[in-house]
């Protein structure tokens, strides 16, 4: 069990160690009954999008690419 706030701000890196920025938001799919997490919104661009300064990116990192969630970072498959 985690909280959204605890995931925010964690560094996102690939398995080979490339930095993809920090996690700013989660993309989700909302139905009448559920809210499923479908992707990670990351990086510097993610922050500016979050604040509405830049148009939103259409390609968050799919949740299925998440390999491991560590205390301070989230590891995803190599892009």
């Amino acid at each position: 069990m985690r909280t959204l706030s605890s995931l925010q701000q964690r560094k996102v890196v690939t398995e080979s160690g490339d930095s993809l920025g920090r996690l700013y938001d989660l993309r989700g799919e909302l139905t009448a009954q559920t809210l499923t997490v479908t992707g990670l919104v990351t990086g510097k661009r993610g922050l500016l999008e979050h604040f509405g300064v830049l148009p939103r990116s259409t390609s968050p990192i799919p949740w299925g690419d998440v390999v491991r969630i560590e205390r301070k970072r989230i590891v995803v498959r190599d892009r």
Partner: peptide
């Protein structure tokens, strides 16, 4: 004030509660 999420890597992750 926060959202509870269940499910980790390789599973379906869902928002399970509002805190």
């Amino acid at each position: 004030d926060d959202l509870e999420i269940e499910g980790g890597p390789g599973e379906t992750a869902r928002v399970t509660a509002i805190l």
